[in-house]
């Protein structure tokens, strides 16, 4: 399971806007970064919750969407060659005798670094669990919140619940290999792409899949294997034979393993100072929405400021013997060279 150790200067936990800007600030100081994020893409909340929504309080951008902001930050970080690791969560951070940290992910990788920057926003995004009695007992055996292998769904009676793109995409993808497939949604209207909705309705009309109005009421089954999904709607209850259930109610954030890293917390946020944004553990910094200090405002712009100051402090740990001369990108040819300015 454990692969070769990945050695780098800094591991940044979280590839949201603040983690991405930290790559830039650290990069100007010749510090190399690896970023780890639980999502399958960069941008954090900006990309997951509101990619299309305009943000109005980014300095010098009267209006910018979450996705545009993310794209710009990626471009700004690009000259420094960061490595991104998606779809994984940092489980453990262990300090070594020589001061290095060993960072382990749930995907089995091990990183060795001098500094850890926690830029994890509100924690890690996790699927919302419907309030159905006993559902935990079936999770990852017959109830799934994501498809890892399509084959696990072949020849099954599948029930998919939800009205967004995930629900509709998987309805369309799994329909051809399912024994039967029923889509359940609370109303006959969908927030998914019109094209997917039209394709789904066509499959219903052809009798290839079923659509039911309603919500999950309860599950039947034993030993982790469901046998039926009972739904309720205006007409009462109805039992749907099912061997696979996929609820799609989006993601929400949970603090997760951050709480176990031995850092001083303030109501689920990491306490830091306002000079270095250092945590109670030397070499571990926390920036962006995940940190707390008196007067903290959860704004992207605050996180950018925190990233810049953190980088100065991280530099002293990573290159203790190097004297840092403060420079501006407008005038420093050295910095411009790092940025690839010709």
């Amino acid at each position: 399971m454990s692969e070769q150790e990945i050695v780098t200067d800094v591991v940044i936990v979280g590839a949201g806007p603040v983690g991405l800007f930290a790559v830039f600030e650290l990069g100007l100081l010749d510090i190399k970064c690896h970023l780890i994020d639980i999502l399958d893409k960069p941008g954090g909340q900006c990309a997951e919750l509101y990619p299309e929504k305009p943000i109005y309080d980014i300095p010098a951008f009267p209006e910018i969407s979450g996705q545009e902001l993310t794209d710009n930050l990626l471009k700004q970080a690009e000259p420094f060659g960061p490595t991104y690791h998606y779809n994984r969560m940092v489980n453990e951070i262990e300090r070594q005798d020589n001061g290095d940290f060993i960072v382990k992910t749930d995907a089995g990788e091990t990183f060795r670094c001098k500094v850890v920057v926690v830029a994890a926003g509100g924690g890690s995004f996790q699927p919302k669990r419907p309030p159905v009695p006993n559902i935990e007992a079936f999770e990852n055996q017959s109830v799934f919140y994501a498809v890892r292998k399509m084959d696990d769904f072949r020849d099954h009676d599948i029930v998919i619940v939800g009205g967004g793109d995930s629900a509709l995409d998987w309805t369309l993808n799994l329909a051809p290999l399912a024994k039967s497939l029923t889509l359940v949604h609370r109303r006959d209207s969908f927030r998914a792409h019109t094209d997917s909705v039209n394709k789904m309705r066509a499959l219903v009309d052809e009798g290839k899949i079923n659509f039911e109005l309603g919500q999950i009421a309860s599950l039947e089954g034993e030993n982790g294997q469901i046998s039926a999904v009972n739904i309720k709607n205006a007409d009462g209850e109805k039992s749907l034979p099912a061997t696979r259930l996929m609820p799609f109610f989006g993601l929400t954030m949970k603090l997760g393993p951050v709480a176990n890293w031995g850092l001083n917390l303030h109501e689920n946020l990491i306490e830091v100072d306002t000079e270095k944004f250092a945590t109670s553990e030397k070499g571990i910094f926390a920036i962006g929405d995940i940190n707390y200090y008196p007067g903290k405002l959860k704004l992207i712009l605050s996180g950018f400021h925190e990233a810049a100051l953190m980088a100065q402090a991280a530099k002293k740990i990573i290159h203790p013997d190097e004297k840092v001369v403060f420079q501006y990108t407008t005038s420093s040819t050295k910095l411009q060279k790092k940025l690839g300015v010709k």
Binding site: K128, P130, G162, G164, R186, Q215, P247, F249
Partner: peptide, 11 residues
Amino acid sequence: EEDMLDMVPDV
């Protein structure tokens, strides 16, 4: 808002 209520599991 209706669209977002679709993301509520206990609606």
